[in-house]
Design a binder for these strands. Structure first.
Length: 300
RNA sequence: GGGGGUGUGGCAGAGCGGACUAAUGCACCAGACUGUAAAUCUGGCGGGAGGAAUCCCUUCGGUGGUUCAAAUCCAUCCGCCCCCA
């Protein structure tokens, strides 16, 4: 019985899933997705889902099972803690069946949360947030500065993060210094991160965006909107979909739609690259590298 | 041939006598981020020195003028565009 899990991360369009599928076939594994967008039902083209849905939250890609996709409705809220809970269950499930869980995805925060855990903090409080958002940035920043200077210096000029820090502080009456503990690994894991040539990656992103639009992503968006999901629902903040919404509102031309979609996706990839650079316990591999688990002690 | 317009940093595009190394956007580079994360946010972006304040050099098609001062005015040359013939 395996006790290790494998993590494969990489920027968008770096070929994570493909690599994971190959690995699963060679080593009897199953994929646990770590993707904050493929969790949404109905958004298939733009989130680049692979394979077919065979059960609630389970897809089959070339005969390999992938968990944690298509699990919530477009308007539903999701967060890192929920991901950890879900992923923990999936990992246990896969291990129980004697297979290797291969966590695959590009969502840095979720991976970090899964691997090292989150400190105990309250979940989103909409009432409080609305209250906070009605105040000015300066006011919020000043308040955070007095309540939790460290958090303030970490979140400066970022309203969203200031609100969250205040939310934690007001709800727990503790500052992050008291709340945040040094954490140990929650799993025995090997974390591979795919490194690609950036120019190649950017080219790939550009053509992928175009292909997505050409293969019905706009209609998919319309369909979801016609189902009654709002333009500002959580899922609609996803790359591409949010641009399509603007296009449908005549705020973007078709050319601009593609340009903005590609641009933001490229920027996103860059953010992913930046994030993983400073994460601990990562083995960086080139995209054409074959992962050979059998050469590792823990798999003998 | 006649008339009008235009030429600005990698691109688009403001500026139209001083605060101009020159707005803004794109591209590009770097970064932050423990519960919204495909989110949110920050810095840089002519060259050289410096941690930085700052300093030196070089820019607005070419050249020559006017002016204390020019991307901005004038002359001329070159390129592009439009209209009339």
């Amino acid at each position: 019985m395996y006790t290790y899990i494998i993590v494969i991360s990489g920027p968008t369009a770096s070929g994570k899933t493909q690599k994971a599928v190959k690995l699963c076939k060679e080593y009897n594994g199953e994929i646990i997705s770590c993707d904050s967008r493929q969790i949404y039902k109905y958004l298939d083209i733009g989130t680049n889902k692979k394979g077919i849905l065979i059960d609630n939250g389970i897809r089959l890609i070339n005969g390999i099972k992938q968990y944690l996709v298509d699990i919530i409705e477009p308007h539903e809220y999701y967060d890192a803690m929920q991901y950890v809970n879900n992923a923990d269950k999936c990992i246990a499930h896969v291990l129980k069946h004697g297979k290797i869980p291969i966590v695959t995805g590009g969502c840095g925060l979720y991976i970090k949360a899964l691997l090292y855990g989150l400190d105990h903090a309250p979940t989103k409080n909409i009432y409080l947030r609305n209250q906070l958002y009605s105040r000015s940035y300066d006011e919020l920043y000043t308040e955070l500065k007095s309540l939790d200077p460290e958090a303030a210096s970490r979140t400066k000029k970022n309203p969203q993060r200031i609100v969250r820090a205040l939310e934690i502080n007001l709800l727990t009456k503790k500052n992050t210094k008291e709340l945040f503990k040094i954490k140990n690994r929650r799993y025995n894991f090997i974390h591979y991160h795919i490194v690609t040539n950036k120019d190649t990656l950017y080219d790939r992103i550009n053509t992928r965006c175009k292909n997505m639009l050409d293969s019905g992503m706009i209609n998919e968006t319309k369909k979801v909107l016609n189902m009654g999901f709002k333009k500002d629902s959580a899922a609609m903040s996803s790359l591409g979909y949010k641009h399509i919404v603007q296009y449908l509102d005549n705020k973007l031309s078709k050319n601009d739609l593609l340009r903005e979609f590609s641009k933001d996706t490229r920027h996103y990839a860059k953010r992913q690259i930046t994030w993983f650079k400073k994460q601990p316990d990562i083995e960086f591999i080139f995209e054409n590298t074959n992962i050979k688990l059998h050469e590792r002690n823990q798999f003998n």
